[in-house]
Measured scan of single mutants.
Amino acid sequence: MQNSHSGVNQLGGVFVNGRPLPDSTRQKIVELAHSGARPCDISRILQVSNGCVSKILGRYYETGSIRPRAIGGSKPRVATPEVVSKIAQYKRECPSIFAWEIRDRLLSEGVCTNDNIPSVSSINRVLRNLASEKQQMGADGMYDKLRMLNGQTGSWGTRPGWYPGTSVPGQPTQDGCQQQEGGGENTNSISSNGEDSDEAQMRLQLKRKLQRNRTSFTQEQIEALEKEFERTHYPDVFARERLAAKIDLPEARIQVWFSNRRAKWRREEKLRNQRRQASNTPSHIPISSSFSTSVYQPIPQPTTPVSSFTSGSMLGRTDTALTNTYSALPPMPSFTMANNLPMQPPVPSQTSSYSCMLPTSPSVNGRSYDTYTPPHMQTHMNSQPMGTSGTTSTGLISPGVSVPVQVPGSEPDMSQYWPRLQ
Rank of each mutant, 00 (worst) to 15 (best):
I71M: 13
R44N: 07
S4M: 12
A79Y: 02
L21A: 04
E133P: 10
G73S: 03
V16D: 06
C112D: 07
M148K: 13
R105S: 10
R44Y: 07
Q10T: 06
E82M: 13
L21F: 03
Q89N: 14
F98T: 06
D140K: 12
Q136H: 11
E82T: 15
I71S: 14
C112P: 06
P39A: 11
L149C: 15
L11W: 06
G36W: 01
L57R: 03
L11C: 06
I87Q: 00
M137P: 12
S122L: 04
P22L: 04
A70T: 10
T63W: 00
N3C: 08
C94S: 13
V78F: 04
H34K: 11
N114F: 10
R44K: 09
R105D: 07
Y143K: 10
G18D: 01
C94Y: 12
D140W: 09
Y60M: 00
L21W: 02
G64V: 03
K134D: 08
V48K: 04
Q10P: 02
P20S: 03
S35F: 14
Y143D: 10
L146R: 14
P20R: 01
R19W: 05
A139C: 12
S132L: 10
V30S: 03
D41Y: 06
N129M: 07
H5S: 11
I42E: 00
N3K: 14
R105E: 08
S4P: 14
R44M: 05
R92A: 10
E62S: 14
E82Y: 14
P22M: 05
V16T: 12
I87G: 02
K145E: 12
Y143S: 14
H34A: 14
G12E: 03
P20E: 01
P76E: 00
I97R: 15
S24W: 08
T25C: 06
V120H: 06
R103E: 03
I117T: 15
N17K: 15
G73Y: 02
S6H: 15
R147P: 15
Y61E: 04
R125V: 05
E133L: 10
K75A: 06
D144M: 11
A79S: 14
R59M: 04
T80C: 04
P118M: 05
P22S: 05
S54C: 10
R77E: 01
E93M: 11
L107Y: 14
V48P: 00
R125P: 00
L21I: 04
S108R: 12
N116I: 09
P39R: 10
D41K: 06
S96N: 12
C52Y: 00
T25G: 02
H5C: 13
I45N: 07
S85L: 09
L32Y: 08
R125K: 05
W100C: 06
V14S: 13
N124L: 06
E109C: 11
L127F: 07
G36I: 00
E133M: 13
Y90V: 14
I29S: 01
N114A: 12
R128H: 04
K75L: 05
E62Y: 04
N17I: 15
N129T: 15
Q135F: 12
R103G: 07
L146P: 10
A131F: 12
V126A: 11
H34V: 09
N129L: 09
L127W: 15
E31A: 09
V78Q: 01
H5Q: 11
V83Y: 00
Q135D: 08
S74R: 10
V120E: 07
